[in-house]
Design a protein around this nucleic acid. Structure first.
Lengths: 233, 233
DNA sequence: TCAAAAGTGTTTACCATACACCCATGT
DNA sequence: ACATGGGTGTATGGTAAACACTTTTGA
């Protein structure tokens, strides 16, 4: 920077990237990944995973790196929500954060903490603890974005394993939208797009009738998009 | 900042706010406001109006201020599009910009330049000159956002005077969506919401049959929203 | 009388919605 | 046998889309 003849002389804010990471759990609805802060300010409080962007690092890359460092997760999807920059949002001074929406499959084993994070844990998205900074606001916006996006793009699949049942998929939609859906109508709508292919294997979910497994057919989805048909579910 | 015990020591990027300002013109489709840069880098090239965010200034406020300084415009609407931060997007070094979508009524008199802007001018959104930085990308995203938003919220009205004809409103939608619409269907759909009220005066658009003028009924729209009915046009 | 835009209804096809019962399995 | 979730079809109402002519004015 200092070698560059055009280097700006203006005062500069600090820049962070934060991730709003959602997953779903069977019968427990939408889950949110939080970390307990290991440093000041807000030490010991719950907050979104995230941290400072390096000077030669893309915003997405920074969000991914921080998430990996603090929680070990690699999201299937990471989309920008927006920039949050109220002058008083950080007690240390001017800090702008770029928020990202991340969707992951929730693993069975508990999450571990990492750099700058004493602890990481999943919370039901409707029962969150008090949060550091303006993170409650970022989460609200992330949920709104998820609600909108899941109806127009097949991003719900990022929350499931490669092979899944229609009931699981329906649960994901119900968790994301926060409303129950009609089983028959849901199946009709989603199958009409022809982007799910039946897997010949079946599977036992325990002690009920085994359910048909499906996988997402990415090629078929691309074909739909090219035809300009918009997936709306 | 420096008085604050928690002040960050990380290297910091510079922070700017840029505005993608759209208007519509009769029979000319969607128009975009650009300025010709008065300083390096990209001196003399066309670019979005915008500039540095002050350290105690909200992002929206910064965008508004810069727009006012460079072009004299006060948009009816200013919404954040997102943050753009590729490390190589500015030859001077690391500069993050927050992009905003602004909608204005295009005045009859030509626009003036201002601080840091030799010149300001309207361009048809489909025939833009070469642009500085990654501004072509911001504009593409802004158009996508406009297309989506105009179908769910009555923001098209921000592009029109208080009293307008249904034909004018239809032109706005056609310009924003980039597609022709059926006149009868458009009128039916938009009038069904009961958010436009007829003004008793009429008006002569020149030398054809005079058209009915309408005004937006903000109270009626608020009522709709409370009922949870979503405006979709 | 002509040009130019304003204004107006009906038909059709599709899709969202609502709704209830039988099936396959494990215990 | 029964409990549990898996799986299926139909009827109805509403709305998006397609479509063409008459009206009013100024020139």
């Amino acid at each position: 920077m200092s070698a560059n003849p055009y280097c700006y002389k203006y005062p500069r804010p600090a820049l962070t990237a934060d991730c709003v990471v959602f997953a779903t759990a069977e019968d427990e609805g939408l889950q949110l990944l939080l970390i307990r802060r290991g440093g000041e300010p807000f030490r010991g409080q719950w907050a979104l995973p995230g941290g400072f962007v390096n000077m030669d690092e893309d915003l997405h890359a920074a969000a991914l790196r921080e998430l990996e460092e603090e929680t070990g997760f690699h999201p299937a999807r990471l989309e920008q929500i927006g920039a949050y920059g109220r002058p008083d949002r950080d007690p240390r001074g001017r800090v702008i954060t770029i928020a990202f929406l991340a969707l992951v499959r929730r693993p069975d084993d508990p999450v571990r903490g990492g750099t700058d994070a004493e602890e990481a844990a999943w919370f039901p998205a409707d029962q969150l603890p008090p949060l550091a900074f303006d993170h409650a606001l970022l989460i609200e916006d992330a949920r709104a974005m998820l609600r909108q996006r899941i109806r127009r793009e097949p991003i719900g699949l990022d929350l499931l394993p490669q092979a899944f049942t229609l009931s699981q998929l329906q649960s994901v939609y119900e968790a994301a939208l926060g409303a129950p859906l009609d089983k028959r109508n849901f199946r009709k709508k989603i199958l009409r797009f022809d982007v799910l292919k039946e897997l010949t294997g079946r599977r036992q979910t325990g002690h009920q009738r085994p359910a048909q497994l499906y996988a997402f057919d990415r090629a078929a989805y691309k074909r739909l998009q090219k035809q300009g048909i918009d997936f709306e579910c």
